[in-house]
């Protein structure tokens, strides 16, 4: 319990738990809409924005956030219009953003942060200020989702049906993409741009294997996610391992274990 007394660990634990709740809720929509690759695209695109922020001497989180939202909305627009196959457009956009990121990081004078931190996260970098921003954003986002939950779910059921029923489907579609994009930027400090998408895909994918109703799925996904974040932070501290990678590895490991156990146990 020594780690609970260390200030940066306290920040990581509180921040990690808030993130776990927010990303698990988003995970419900990402799984229903098959948005895994969109999420991967947005999280990778964040890297370009963060690097531009460093280069310009502005807040990397702010510039990264604006950049991620712009790329997220662009990906959302392309995949909604369906002119180009969304996998192709996402592949191009996220490679371009990553390339931009590497170029700007190299061009930044006196750059002393580790590139590795961006890519895979570092709990040491999470500050009290980050936690306040994360908390306010999570309250606003979850509040928005809470109030409009059935309408958003109706859009996930079928956007055209929801539209005929009088729902402003475009508004909810782009709102959720915007929330996912900002949440990704906030997740970078904990798990990095490469691993952030795992925290948005695995919680509900895990819960889906046990329950079918959305209420139980959400409760299980949030509980699972909090446990994985706390477990990951503890293991990474005890064994001196990178925090982001440990957390995401734990997510994947427990998900895979459940996946195989479920298939080994005969039904009936």
């Amino acid at each position: 319990m020594e780690l609970l007394t260390i200030p940066f660990m306290q920040n990581a634990i509180i921040g990690g738990m808030i993130l776990a709740v927010l990303l698990s809720v988003l995970s419900l929509f990402i799984n229903l809409k098959n948005w895994s690759f969109i999420t991967v695209g947005i999280s990778h695109a964040t890297f370009g924005g963060l690097a531009i922020g460093f280069f310009l001497g502005l807040s990397p989180s702010l510039v990264g956030g604006i950049f991620a939202v712009a790329v997220g909305l662009l990906i959302g627009y392309i995949s909604k219009k369906g002119d180009i196959h969304e996998d192709i457009s996402i592949g191009i956009l996220f490679s371009m953003s990553m390339a931009l990121g590497v170029i700007f990081i190299t061009l930044t004078p006196n750059y002393n942060s580790d590139l590795f931190t961006f890519l895979f996260g570092n709990i040491l970098t999470m500050t009290r200020e980050d936690i306040y921003i994360l908390l306010i954003f999570s309250i606003l986002s979850i509040g928005f989702i809470w109030i409009n939950f059935q309408k958003i779910m109706y859009c996930c059921y079928n956007e055209e049906v929801a539209f005929v029923s009088g729902i402003h489907t475009g508004f909810y579609y782009y709102s959720i993409i915007t929330i996912i994009s900002i949440a990704t930027v906030l997740a970078v400090k904990l798990v990095g741009v490469i691993l952030a998408s795992a925290m948005m895909i695995l919680p509900v994918a895990f819960a889906n294997q046990i329950f079918w109703h959305y209420k139980k799925i959400l409760i299980t996904a949030i509980t699972f996610s909090i446990l994985m974040v706390l477990g990951g932070i503890y293991i990474s501290y005890e064994y001196n391992l990178p925090s982001g990678a440990t957390i995401v590895f734990l997510y994947s490991l427990i998900f895979s274990l459940l996946f195989f156990i479920k298939r080994l146990i005969p039904k009936g």
């Binding site: 059935q150 996930c156 059921y157 029923s165 109703h213």
Partner: peptide
């Protein structure tokens, strides 16, 4: 719509789905 356009694992009960029509 065509049945294939609805997510296979849509996590709603029958009552939940019908209630969507009254949203």
């Amino acid at each position: 719509p065509q049945k294939s356009s609805i997510p296979k694992n849509f996590p709603y009960s029958v009552l939940d789905v019908v209630l969507l029509g009254l949203i």
